[in-house]
């Protein structure tokens, strides 16, 4: 095939996909923000995305905080700067690692589950059935998921921040010989409100990305088990990449 034709096809496919995502996003945002809302659906999603994700987010945070403390201690020892462990752990967790790592875990858990569920509904004609029952699938399926993710991911990240710092505290006090009360005081005195809030703003954006990609790929799932499988993979991969890209953009805005 002509290389120019290949390039043309790729550009057209990319443009088509970008347009489809933009249109889907517009309908999804309108469904999330404008009434009527399906409260039972929103409640179910808040529980599913928020409450049931607590263990995975908590475990991610505690080990990340612990490993971070060890690394900073080792690196800091080269400059006799071991005492900065609490400061750097709290800064790293709240501004960067808490939101990014928790959201990546949620991309794996939540985006995949959304894509698989909505994809299965697509291939078994349940989404068509919703329309024939005078119910807008965007309002019933997409809106509640986006809204629930925007609400719950910042809360999960706040929990991850606290658990992450406590992971650092545990290693520092049990292995590295820090005083527990001093570690906590140093952390609290050093961290600013903006450090935490900027991380939570990131988390809300990442939550939006996680739900949007899960719903988008599920909604456009092709027929068959292979179609649903591909939708699930695409949801996780695209959500993860968009989280990294959005993280860079937001970090440049927040520094």
């Amino acid at each position: 095939m002509n290389p120019l034709a290949i390039l043309g096809h790729a550009v057209l496919a990319l443009t088509r996909e970008a347009g489809a995502i933009a249109l889907f996003t517009r309908r999804g945002v309108v469904a999330a923000l404008m009434p009527p809302w399906y409260w039972s659906q929103l409640g179910a999603q808040l529980l599913r995305i928020g409450y049931f994700s607590l263990p995975v987010v908590g475990l991610t945070a505690v080990f990340t905080g612990a490993a971070l403390a060890l690394n900073i201690y080792t690196g800091g020892a080269r400059f006799n700067a071991e005492q900065f462990v609490p400061n750097i752990v709290v800064l790293g967790i709240t501004r960067e690692l808490g939101p990014v790592l928790a959201s990546l875990m949620l991309a794996g858990r939540v985006s995949a589950a959304m894509a698989a569920e909505i994809g299965a509904m697509r291939v078994t004609e349940q989404i068509d059935a919703l329309e024939t029952l005078s119910t807008d699938p965007f309002r019933f399926l997409v809106g509640p998921r986006i809204l629930a993710a925007i609400i719950t991911v910042p809360i999960l990240v706040l929990v991850a921040d606290i658990i992450g710092v406590m992971g650092g505290w545990a290693v520092s006090t049990q292995i590295l010989g820090f005083n527990g009360a001093t570690y906590i005081r140093n952390s609290v005195d050093f961290v600013t409100q903006w450090d935490v809030v900027s991380g939570l703003i990131k988390a809300a954006v990442f939550g939006f990305i996680i739900a949007l990609m899960g719903c988008y790929h599920g909604y456009r799932s092709k027929r068959g088990a292979q179609g649903v499988g591909r939708a699930t993979t695409n949801a996780v991969v695209s959500a993860a990449i968009l989280i990294f890209a959005a993280n860079y953009v937001l970090t440049t805005l927040f520094v």
Partner: peptide, 29 residues
């Protein structure tokens, strides 16, 4: 959606909602 209120549809595979009970499926509309 208004036109759809005149319609009732039986899908080939049933297209029942997995997440709802039988009566909630029937009473969905």
């Amino acid at each position: 959606a208004k036109v759809m209120s005149k319609f009732g549809m039986l899908f080939q595979g049933g297209a029942l909602f997995d997440s709802l009970s039988v009566w909630e499926n029937v009473a969905f509309r």
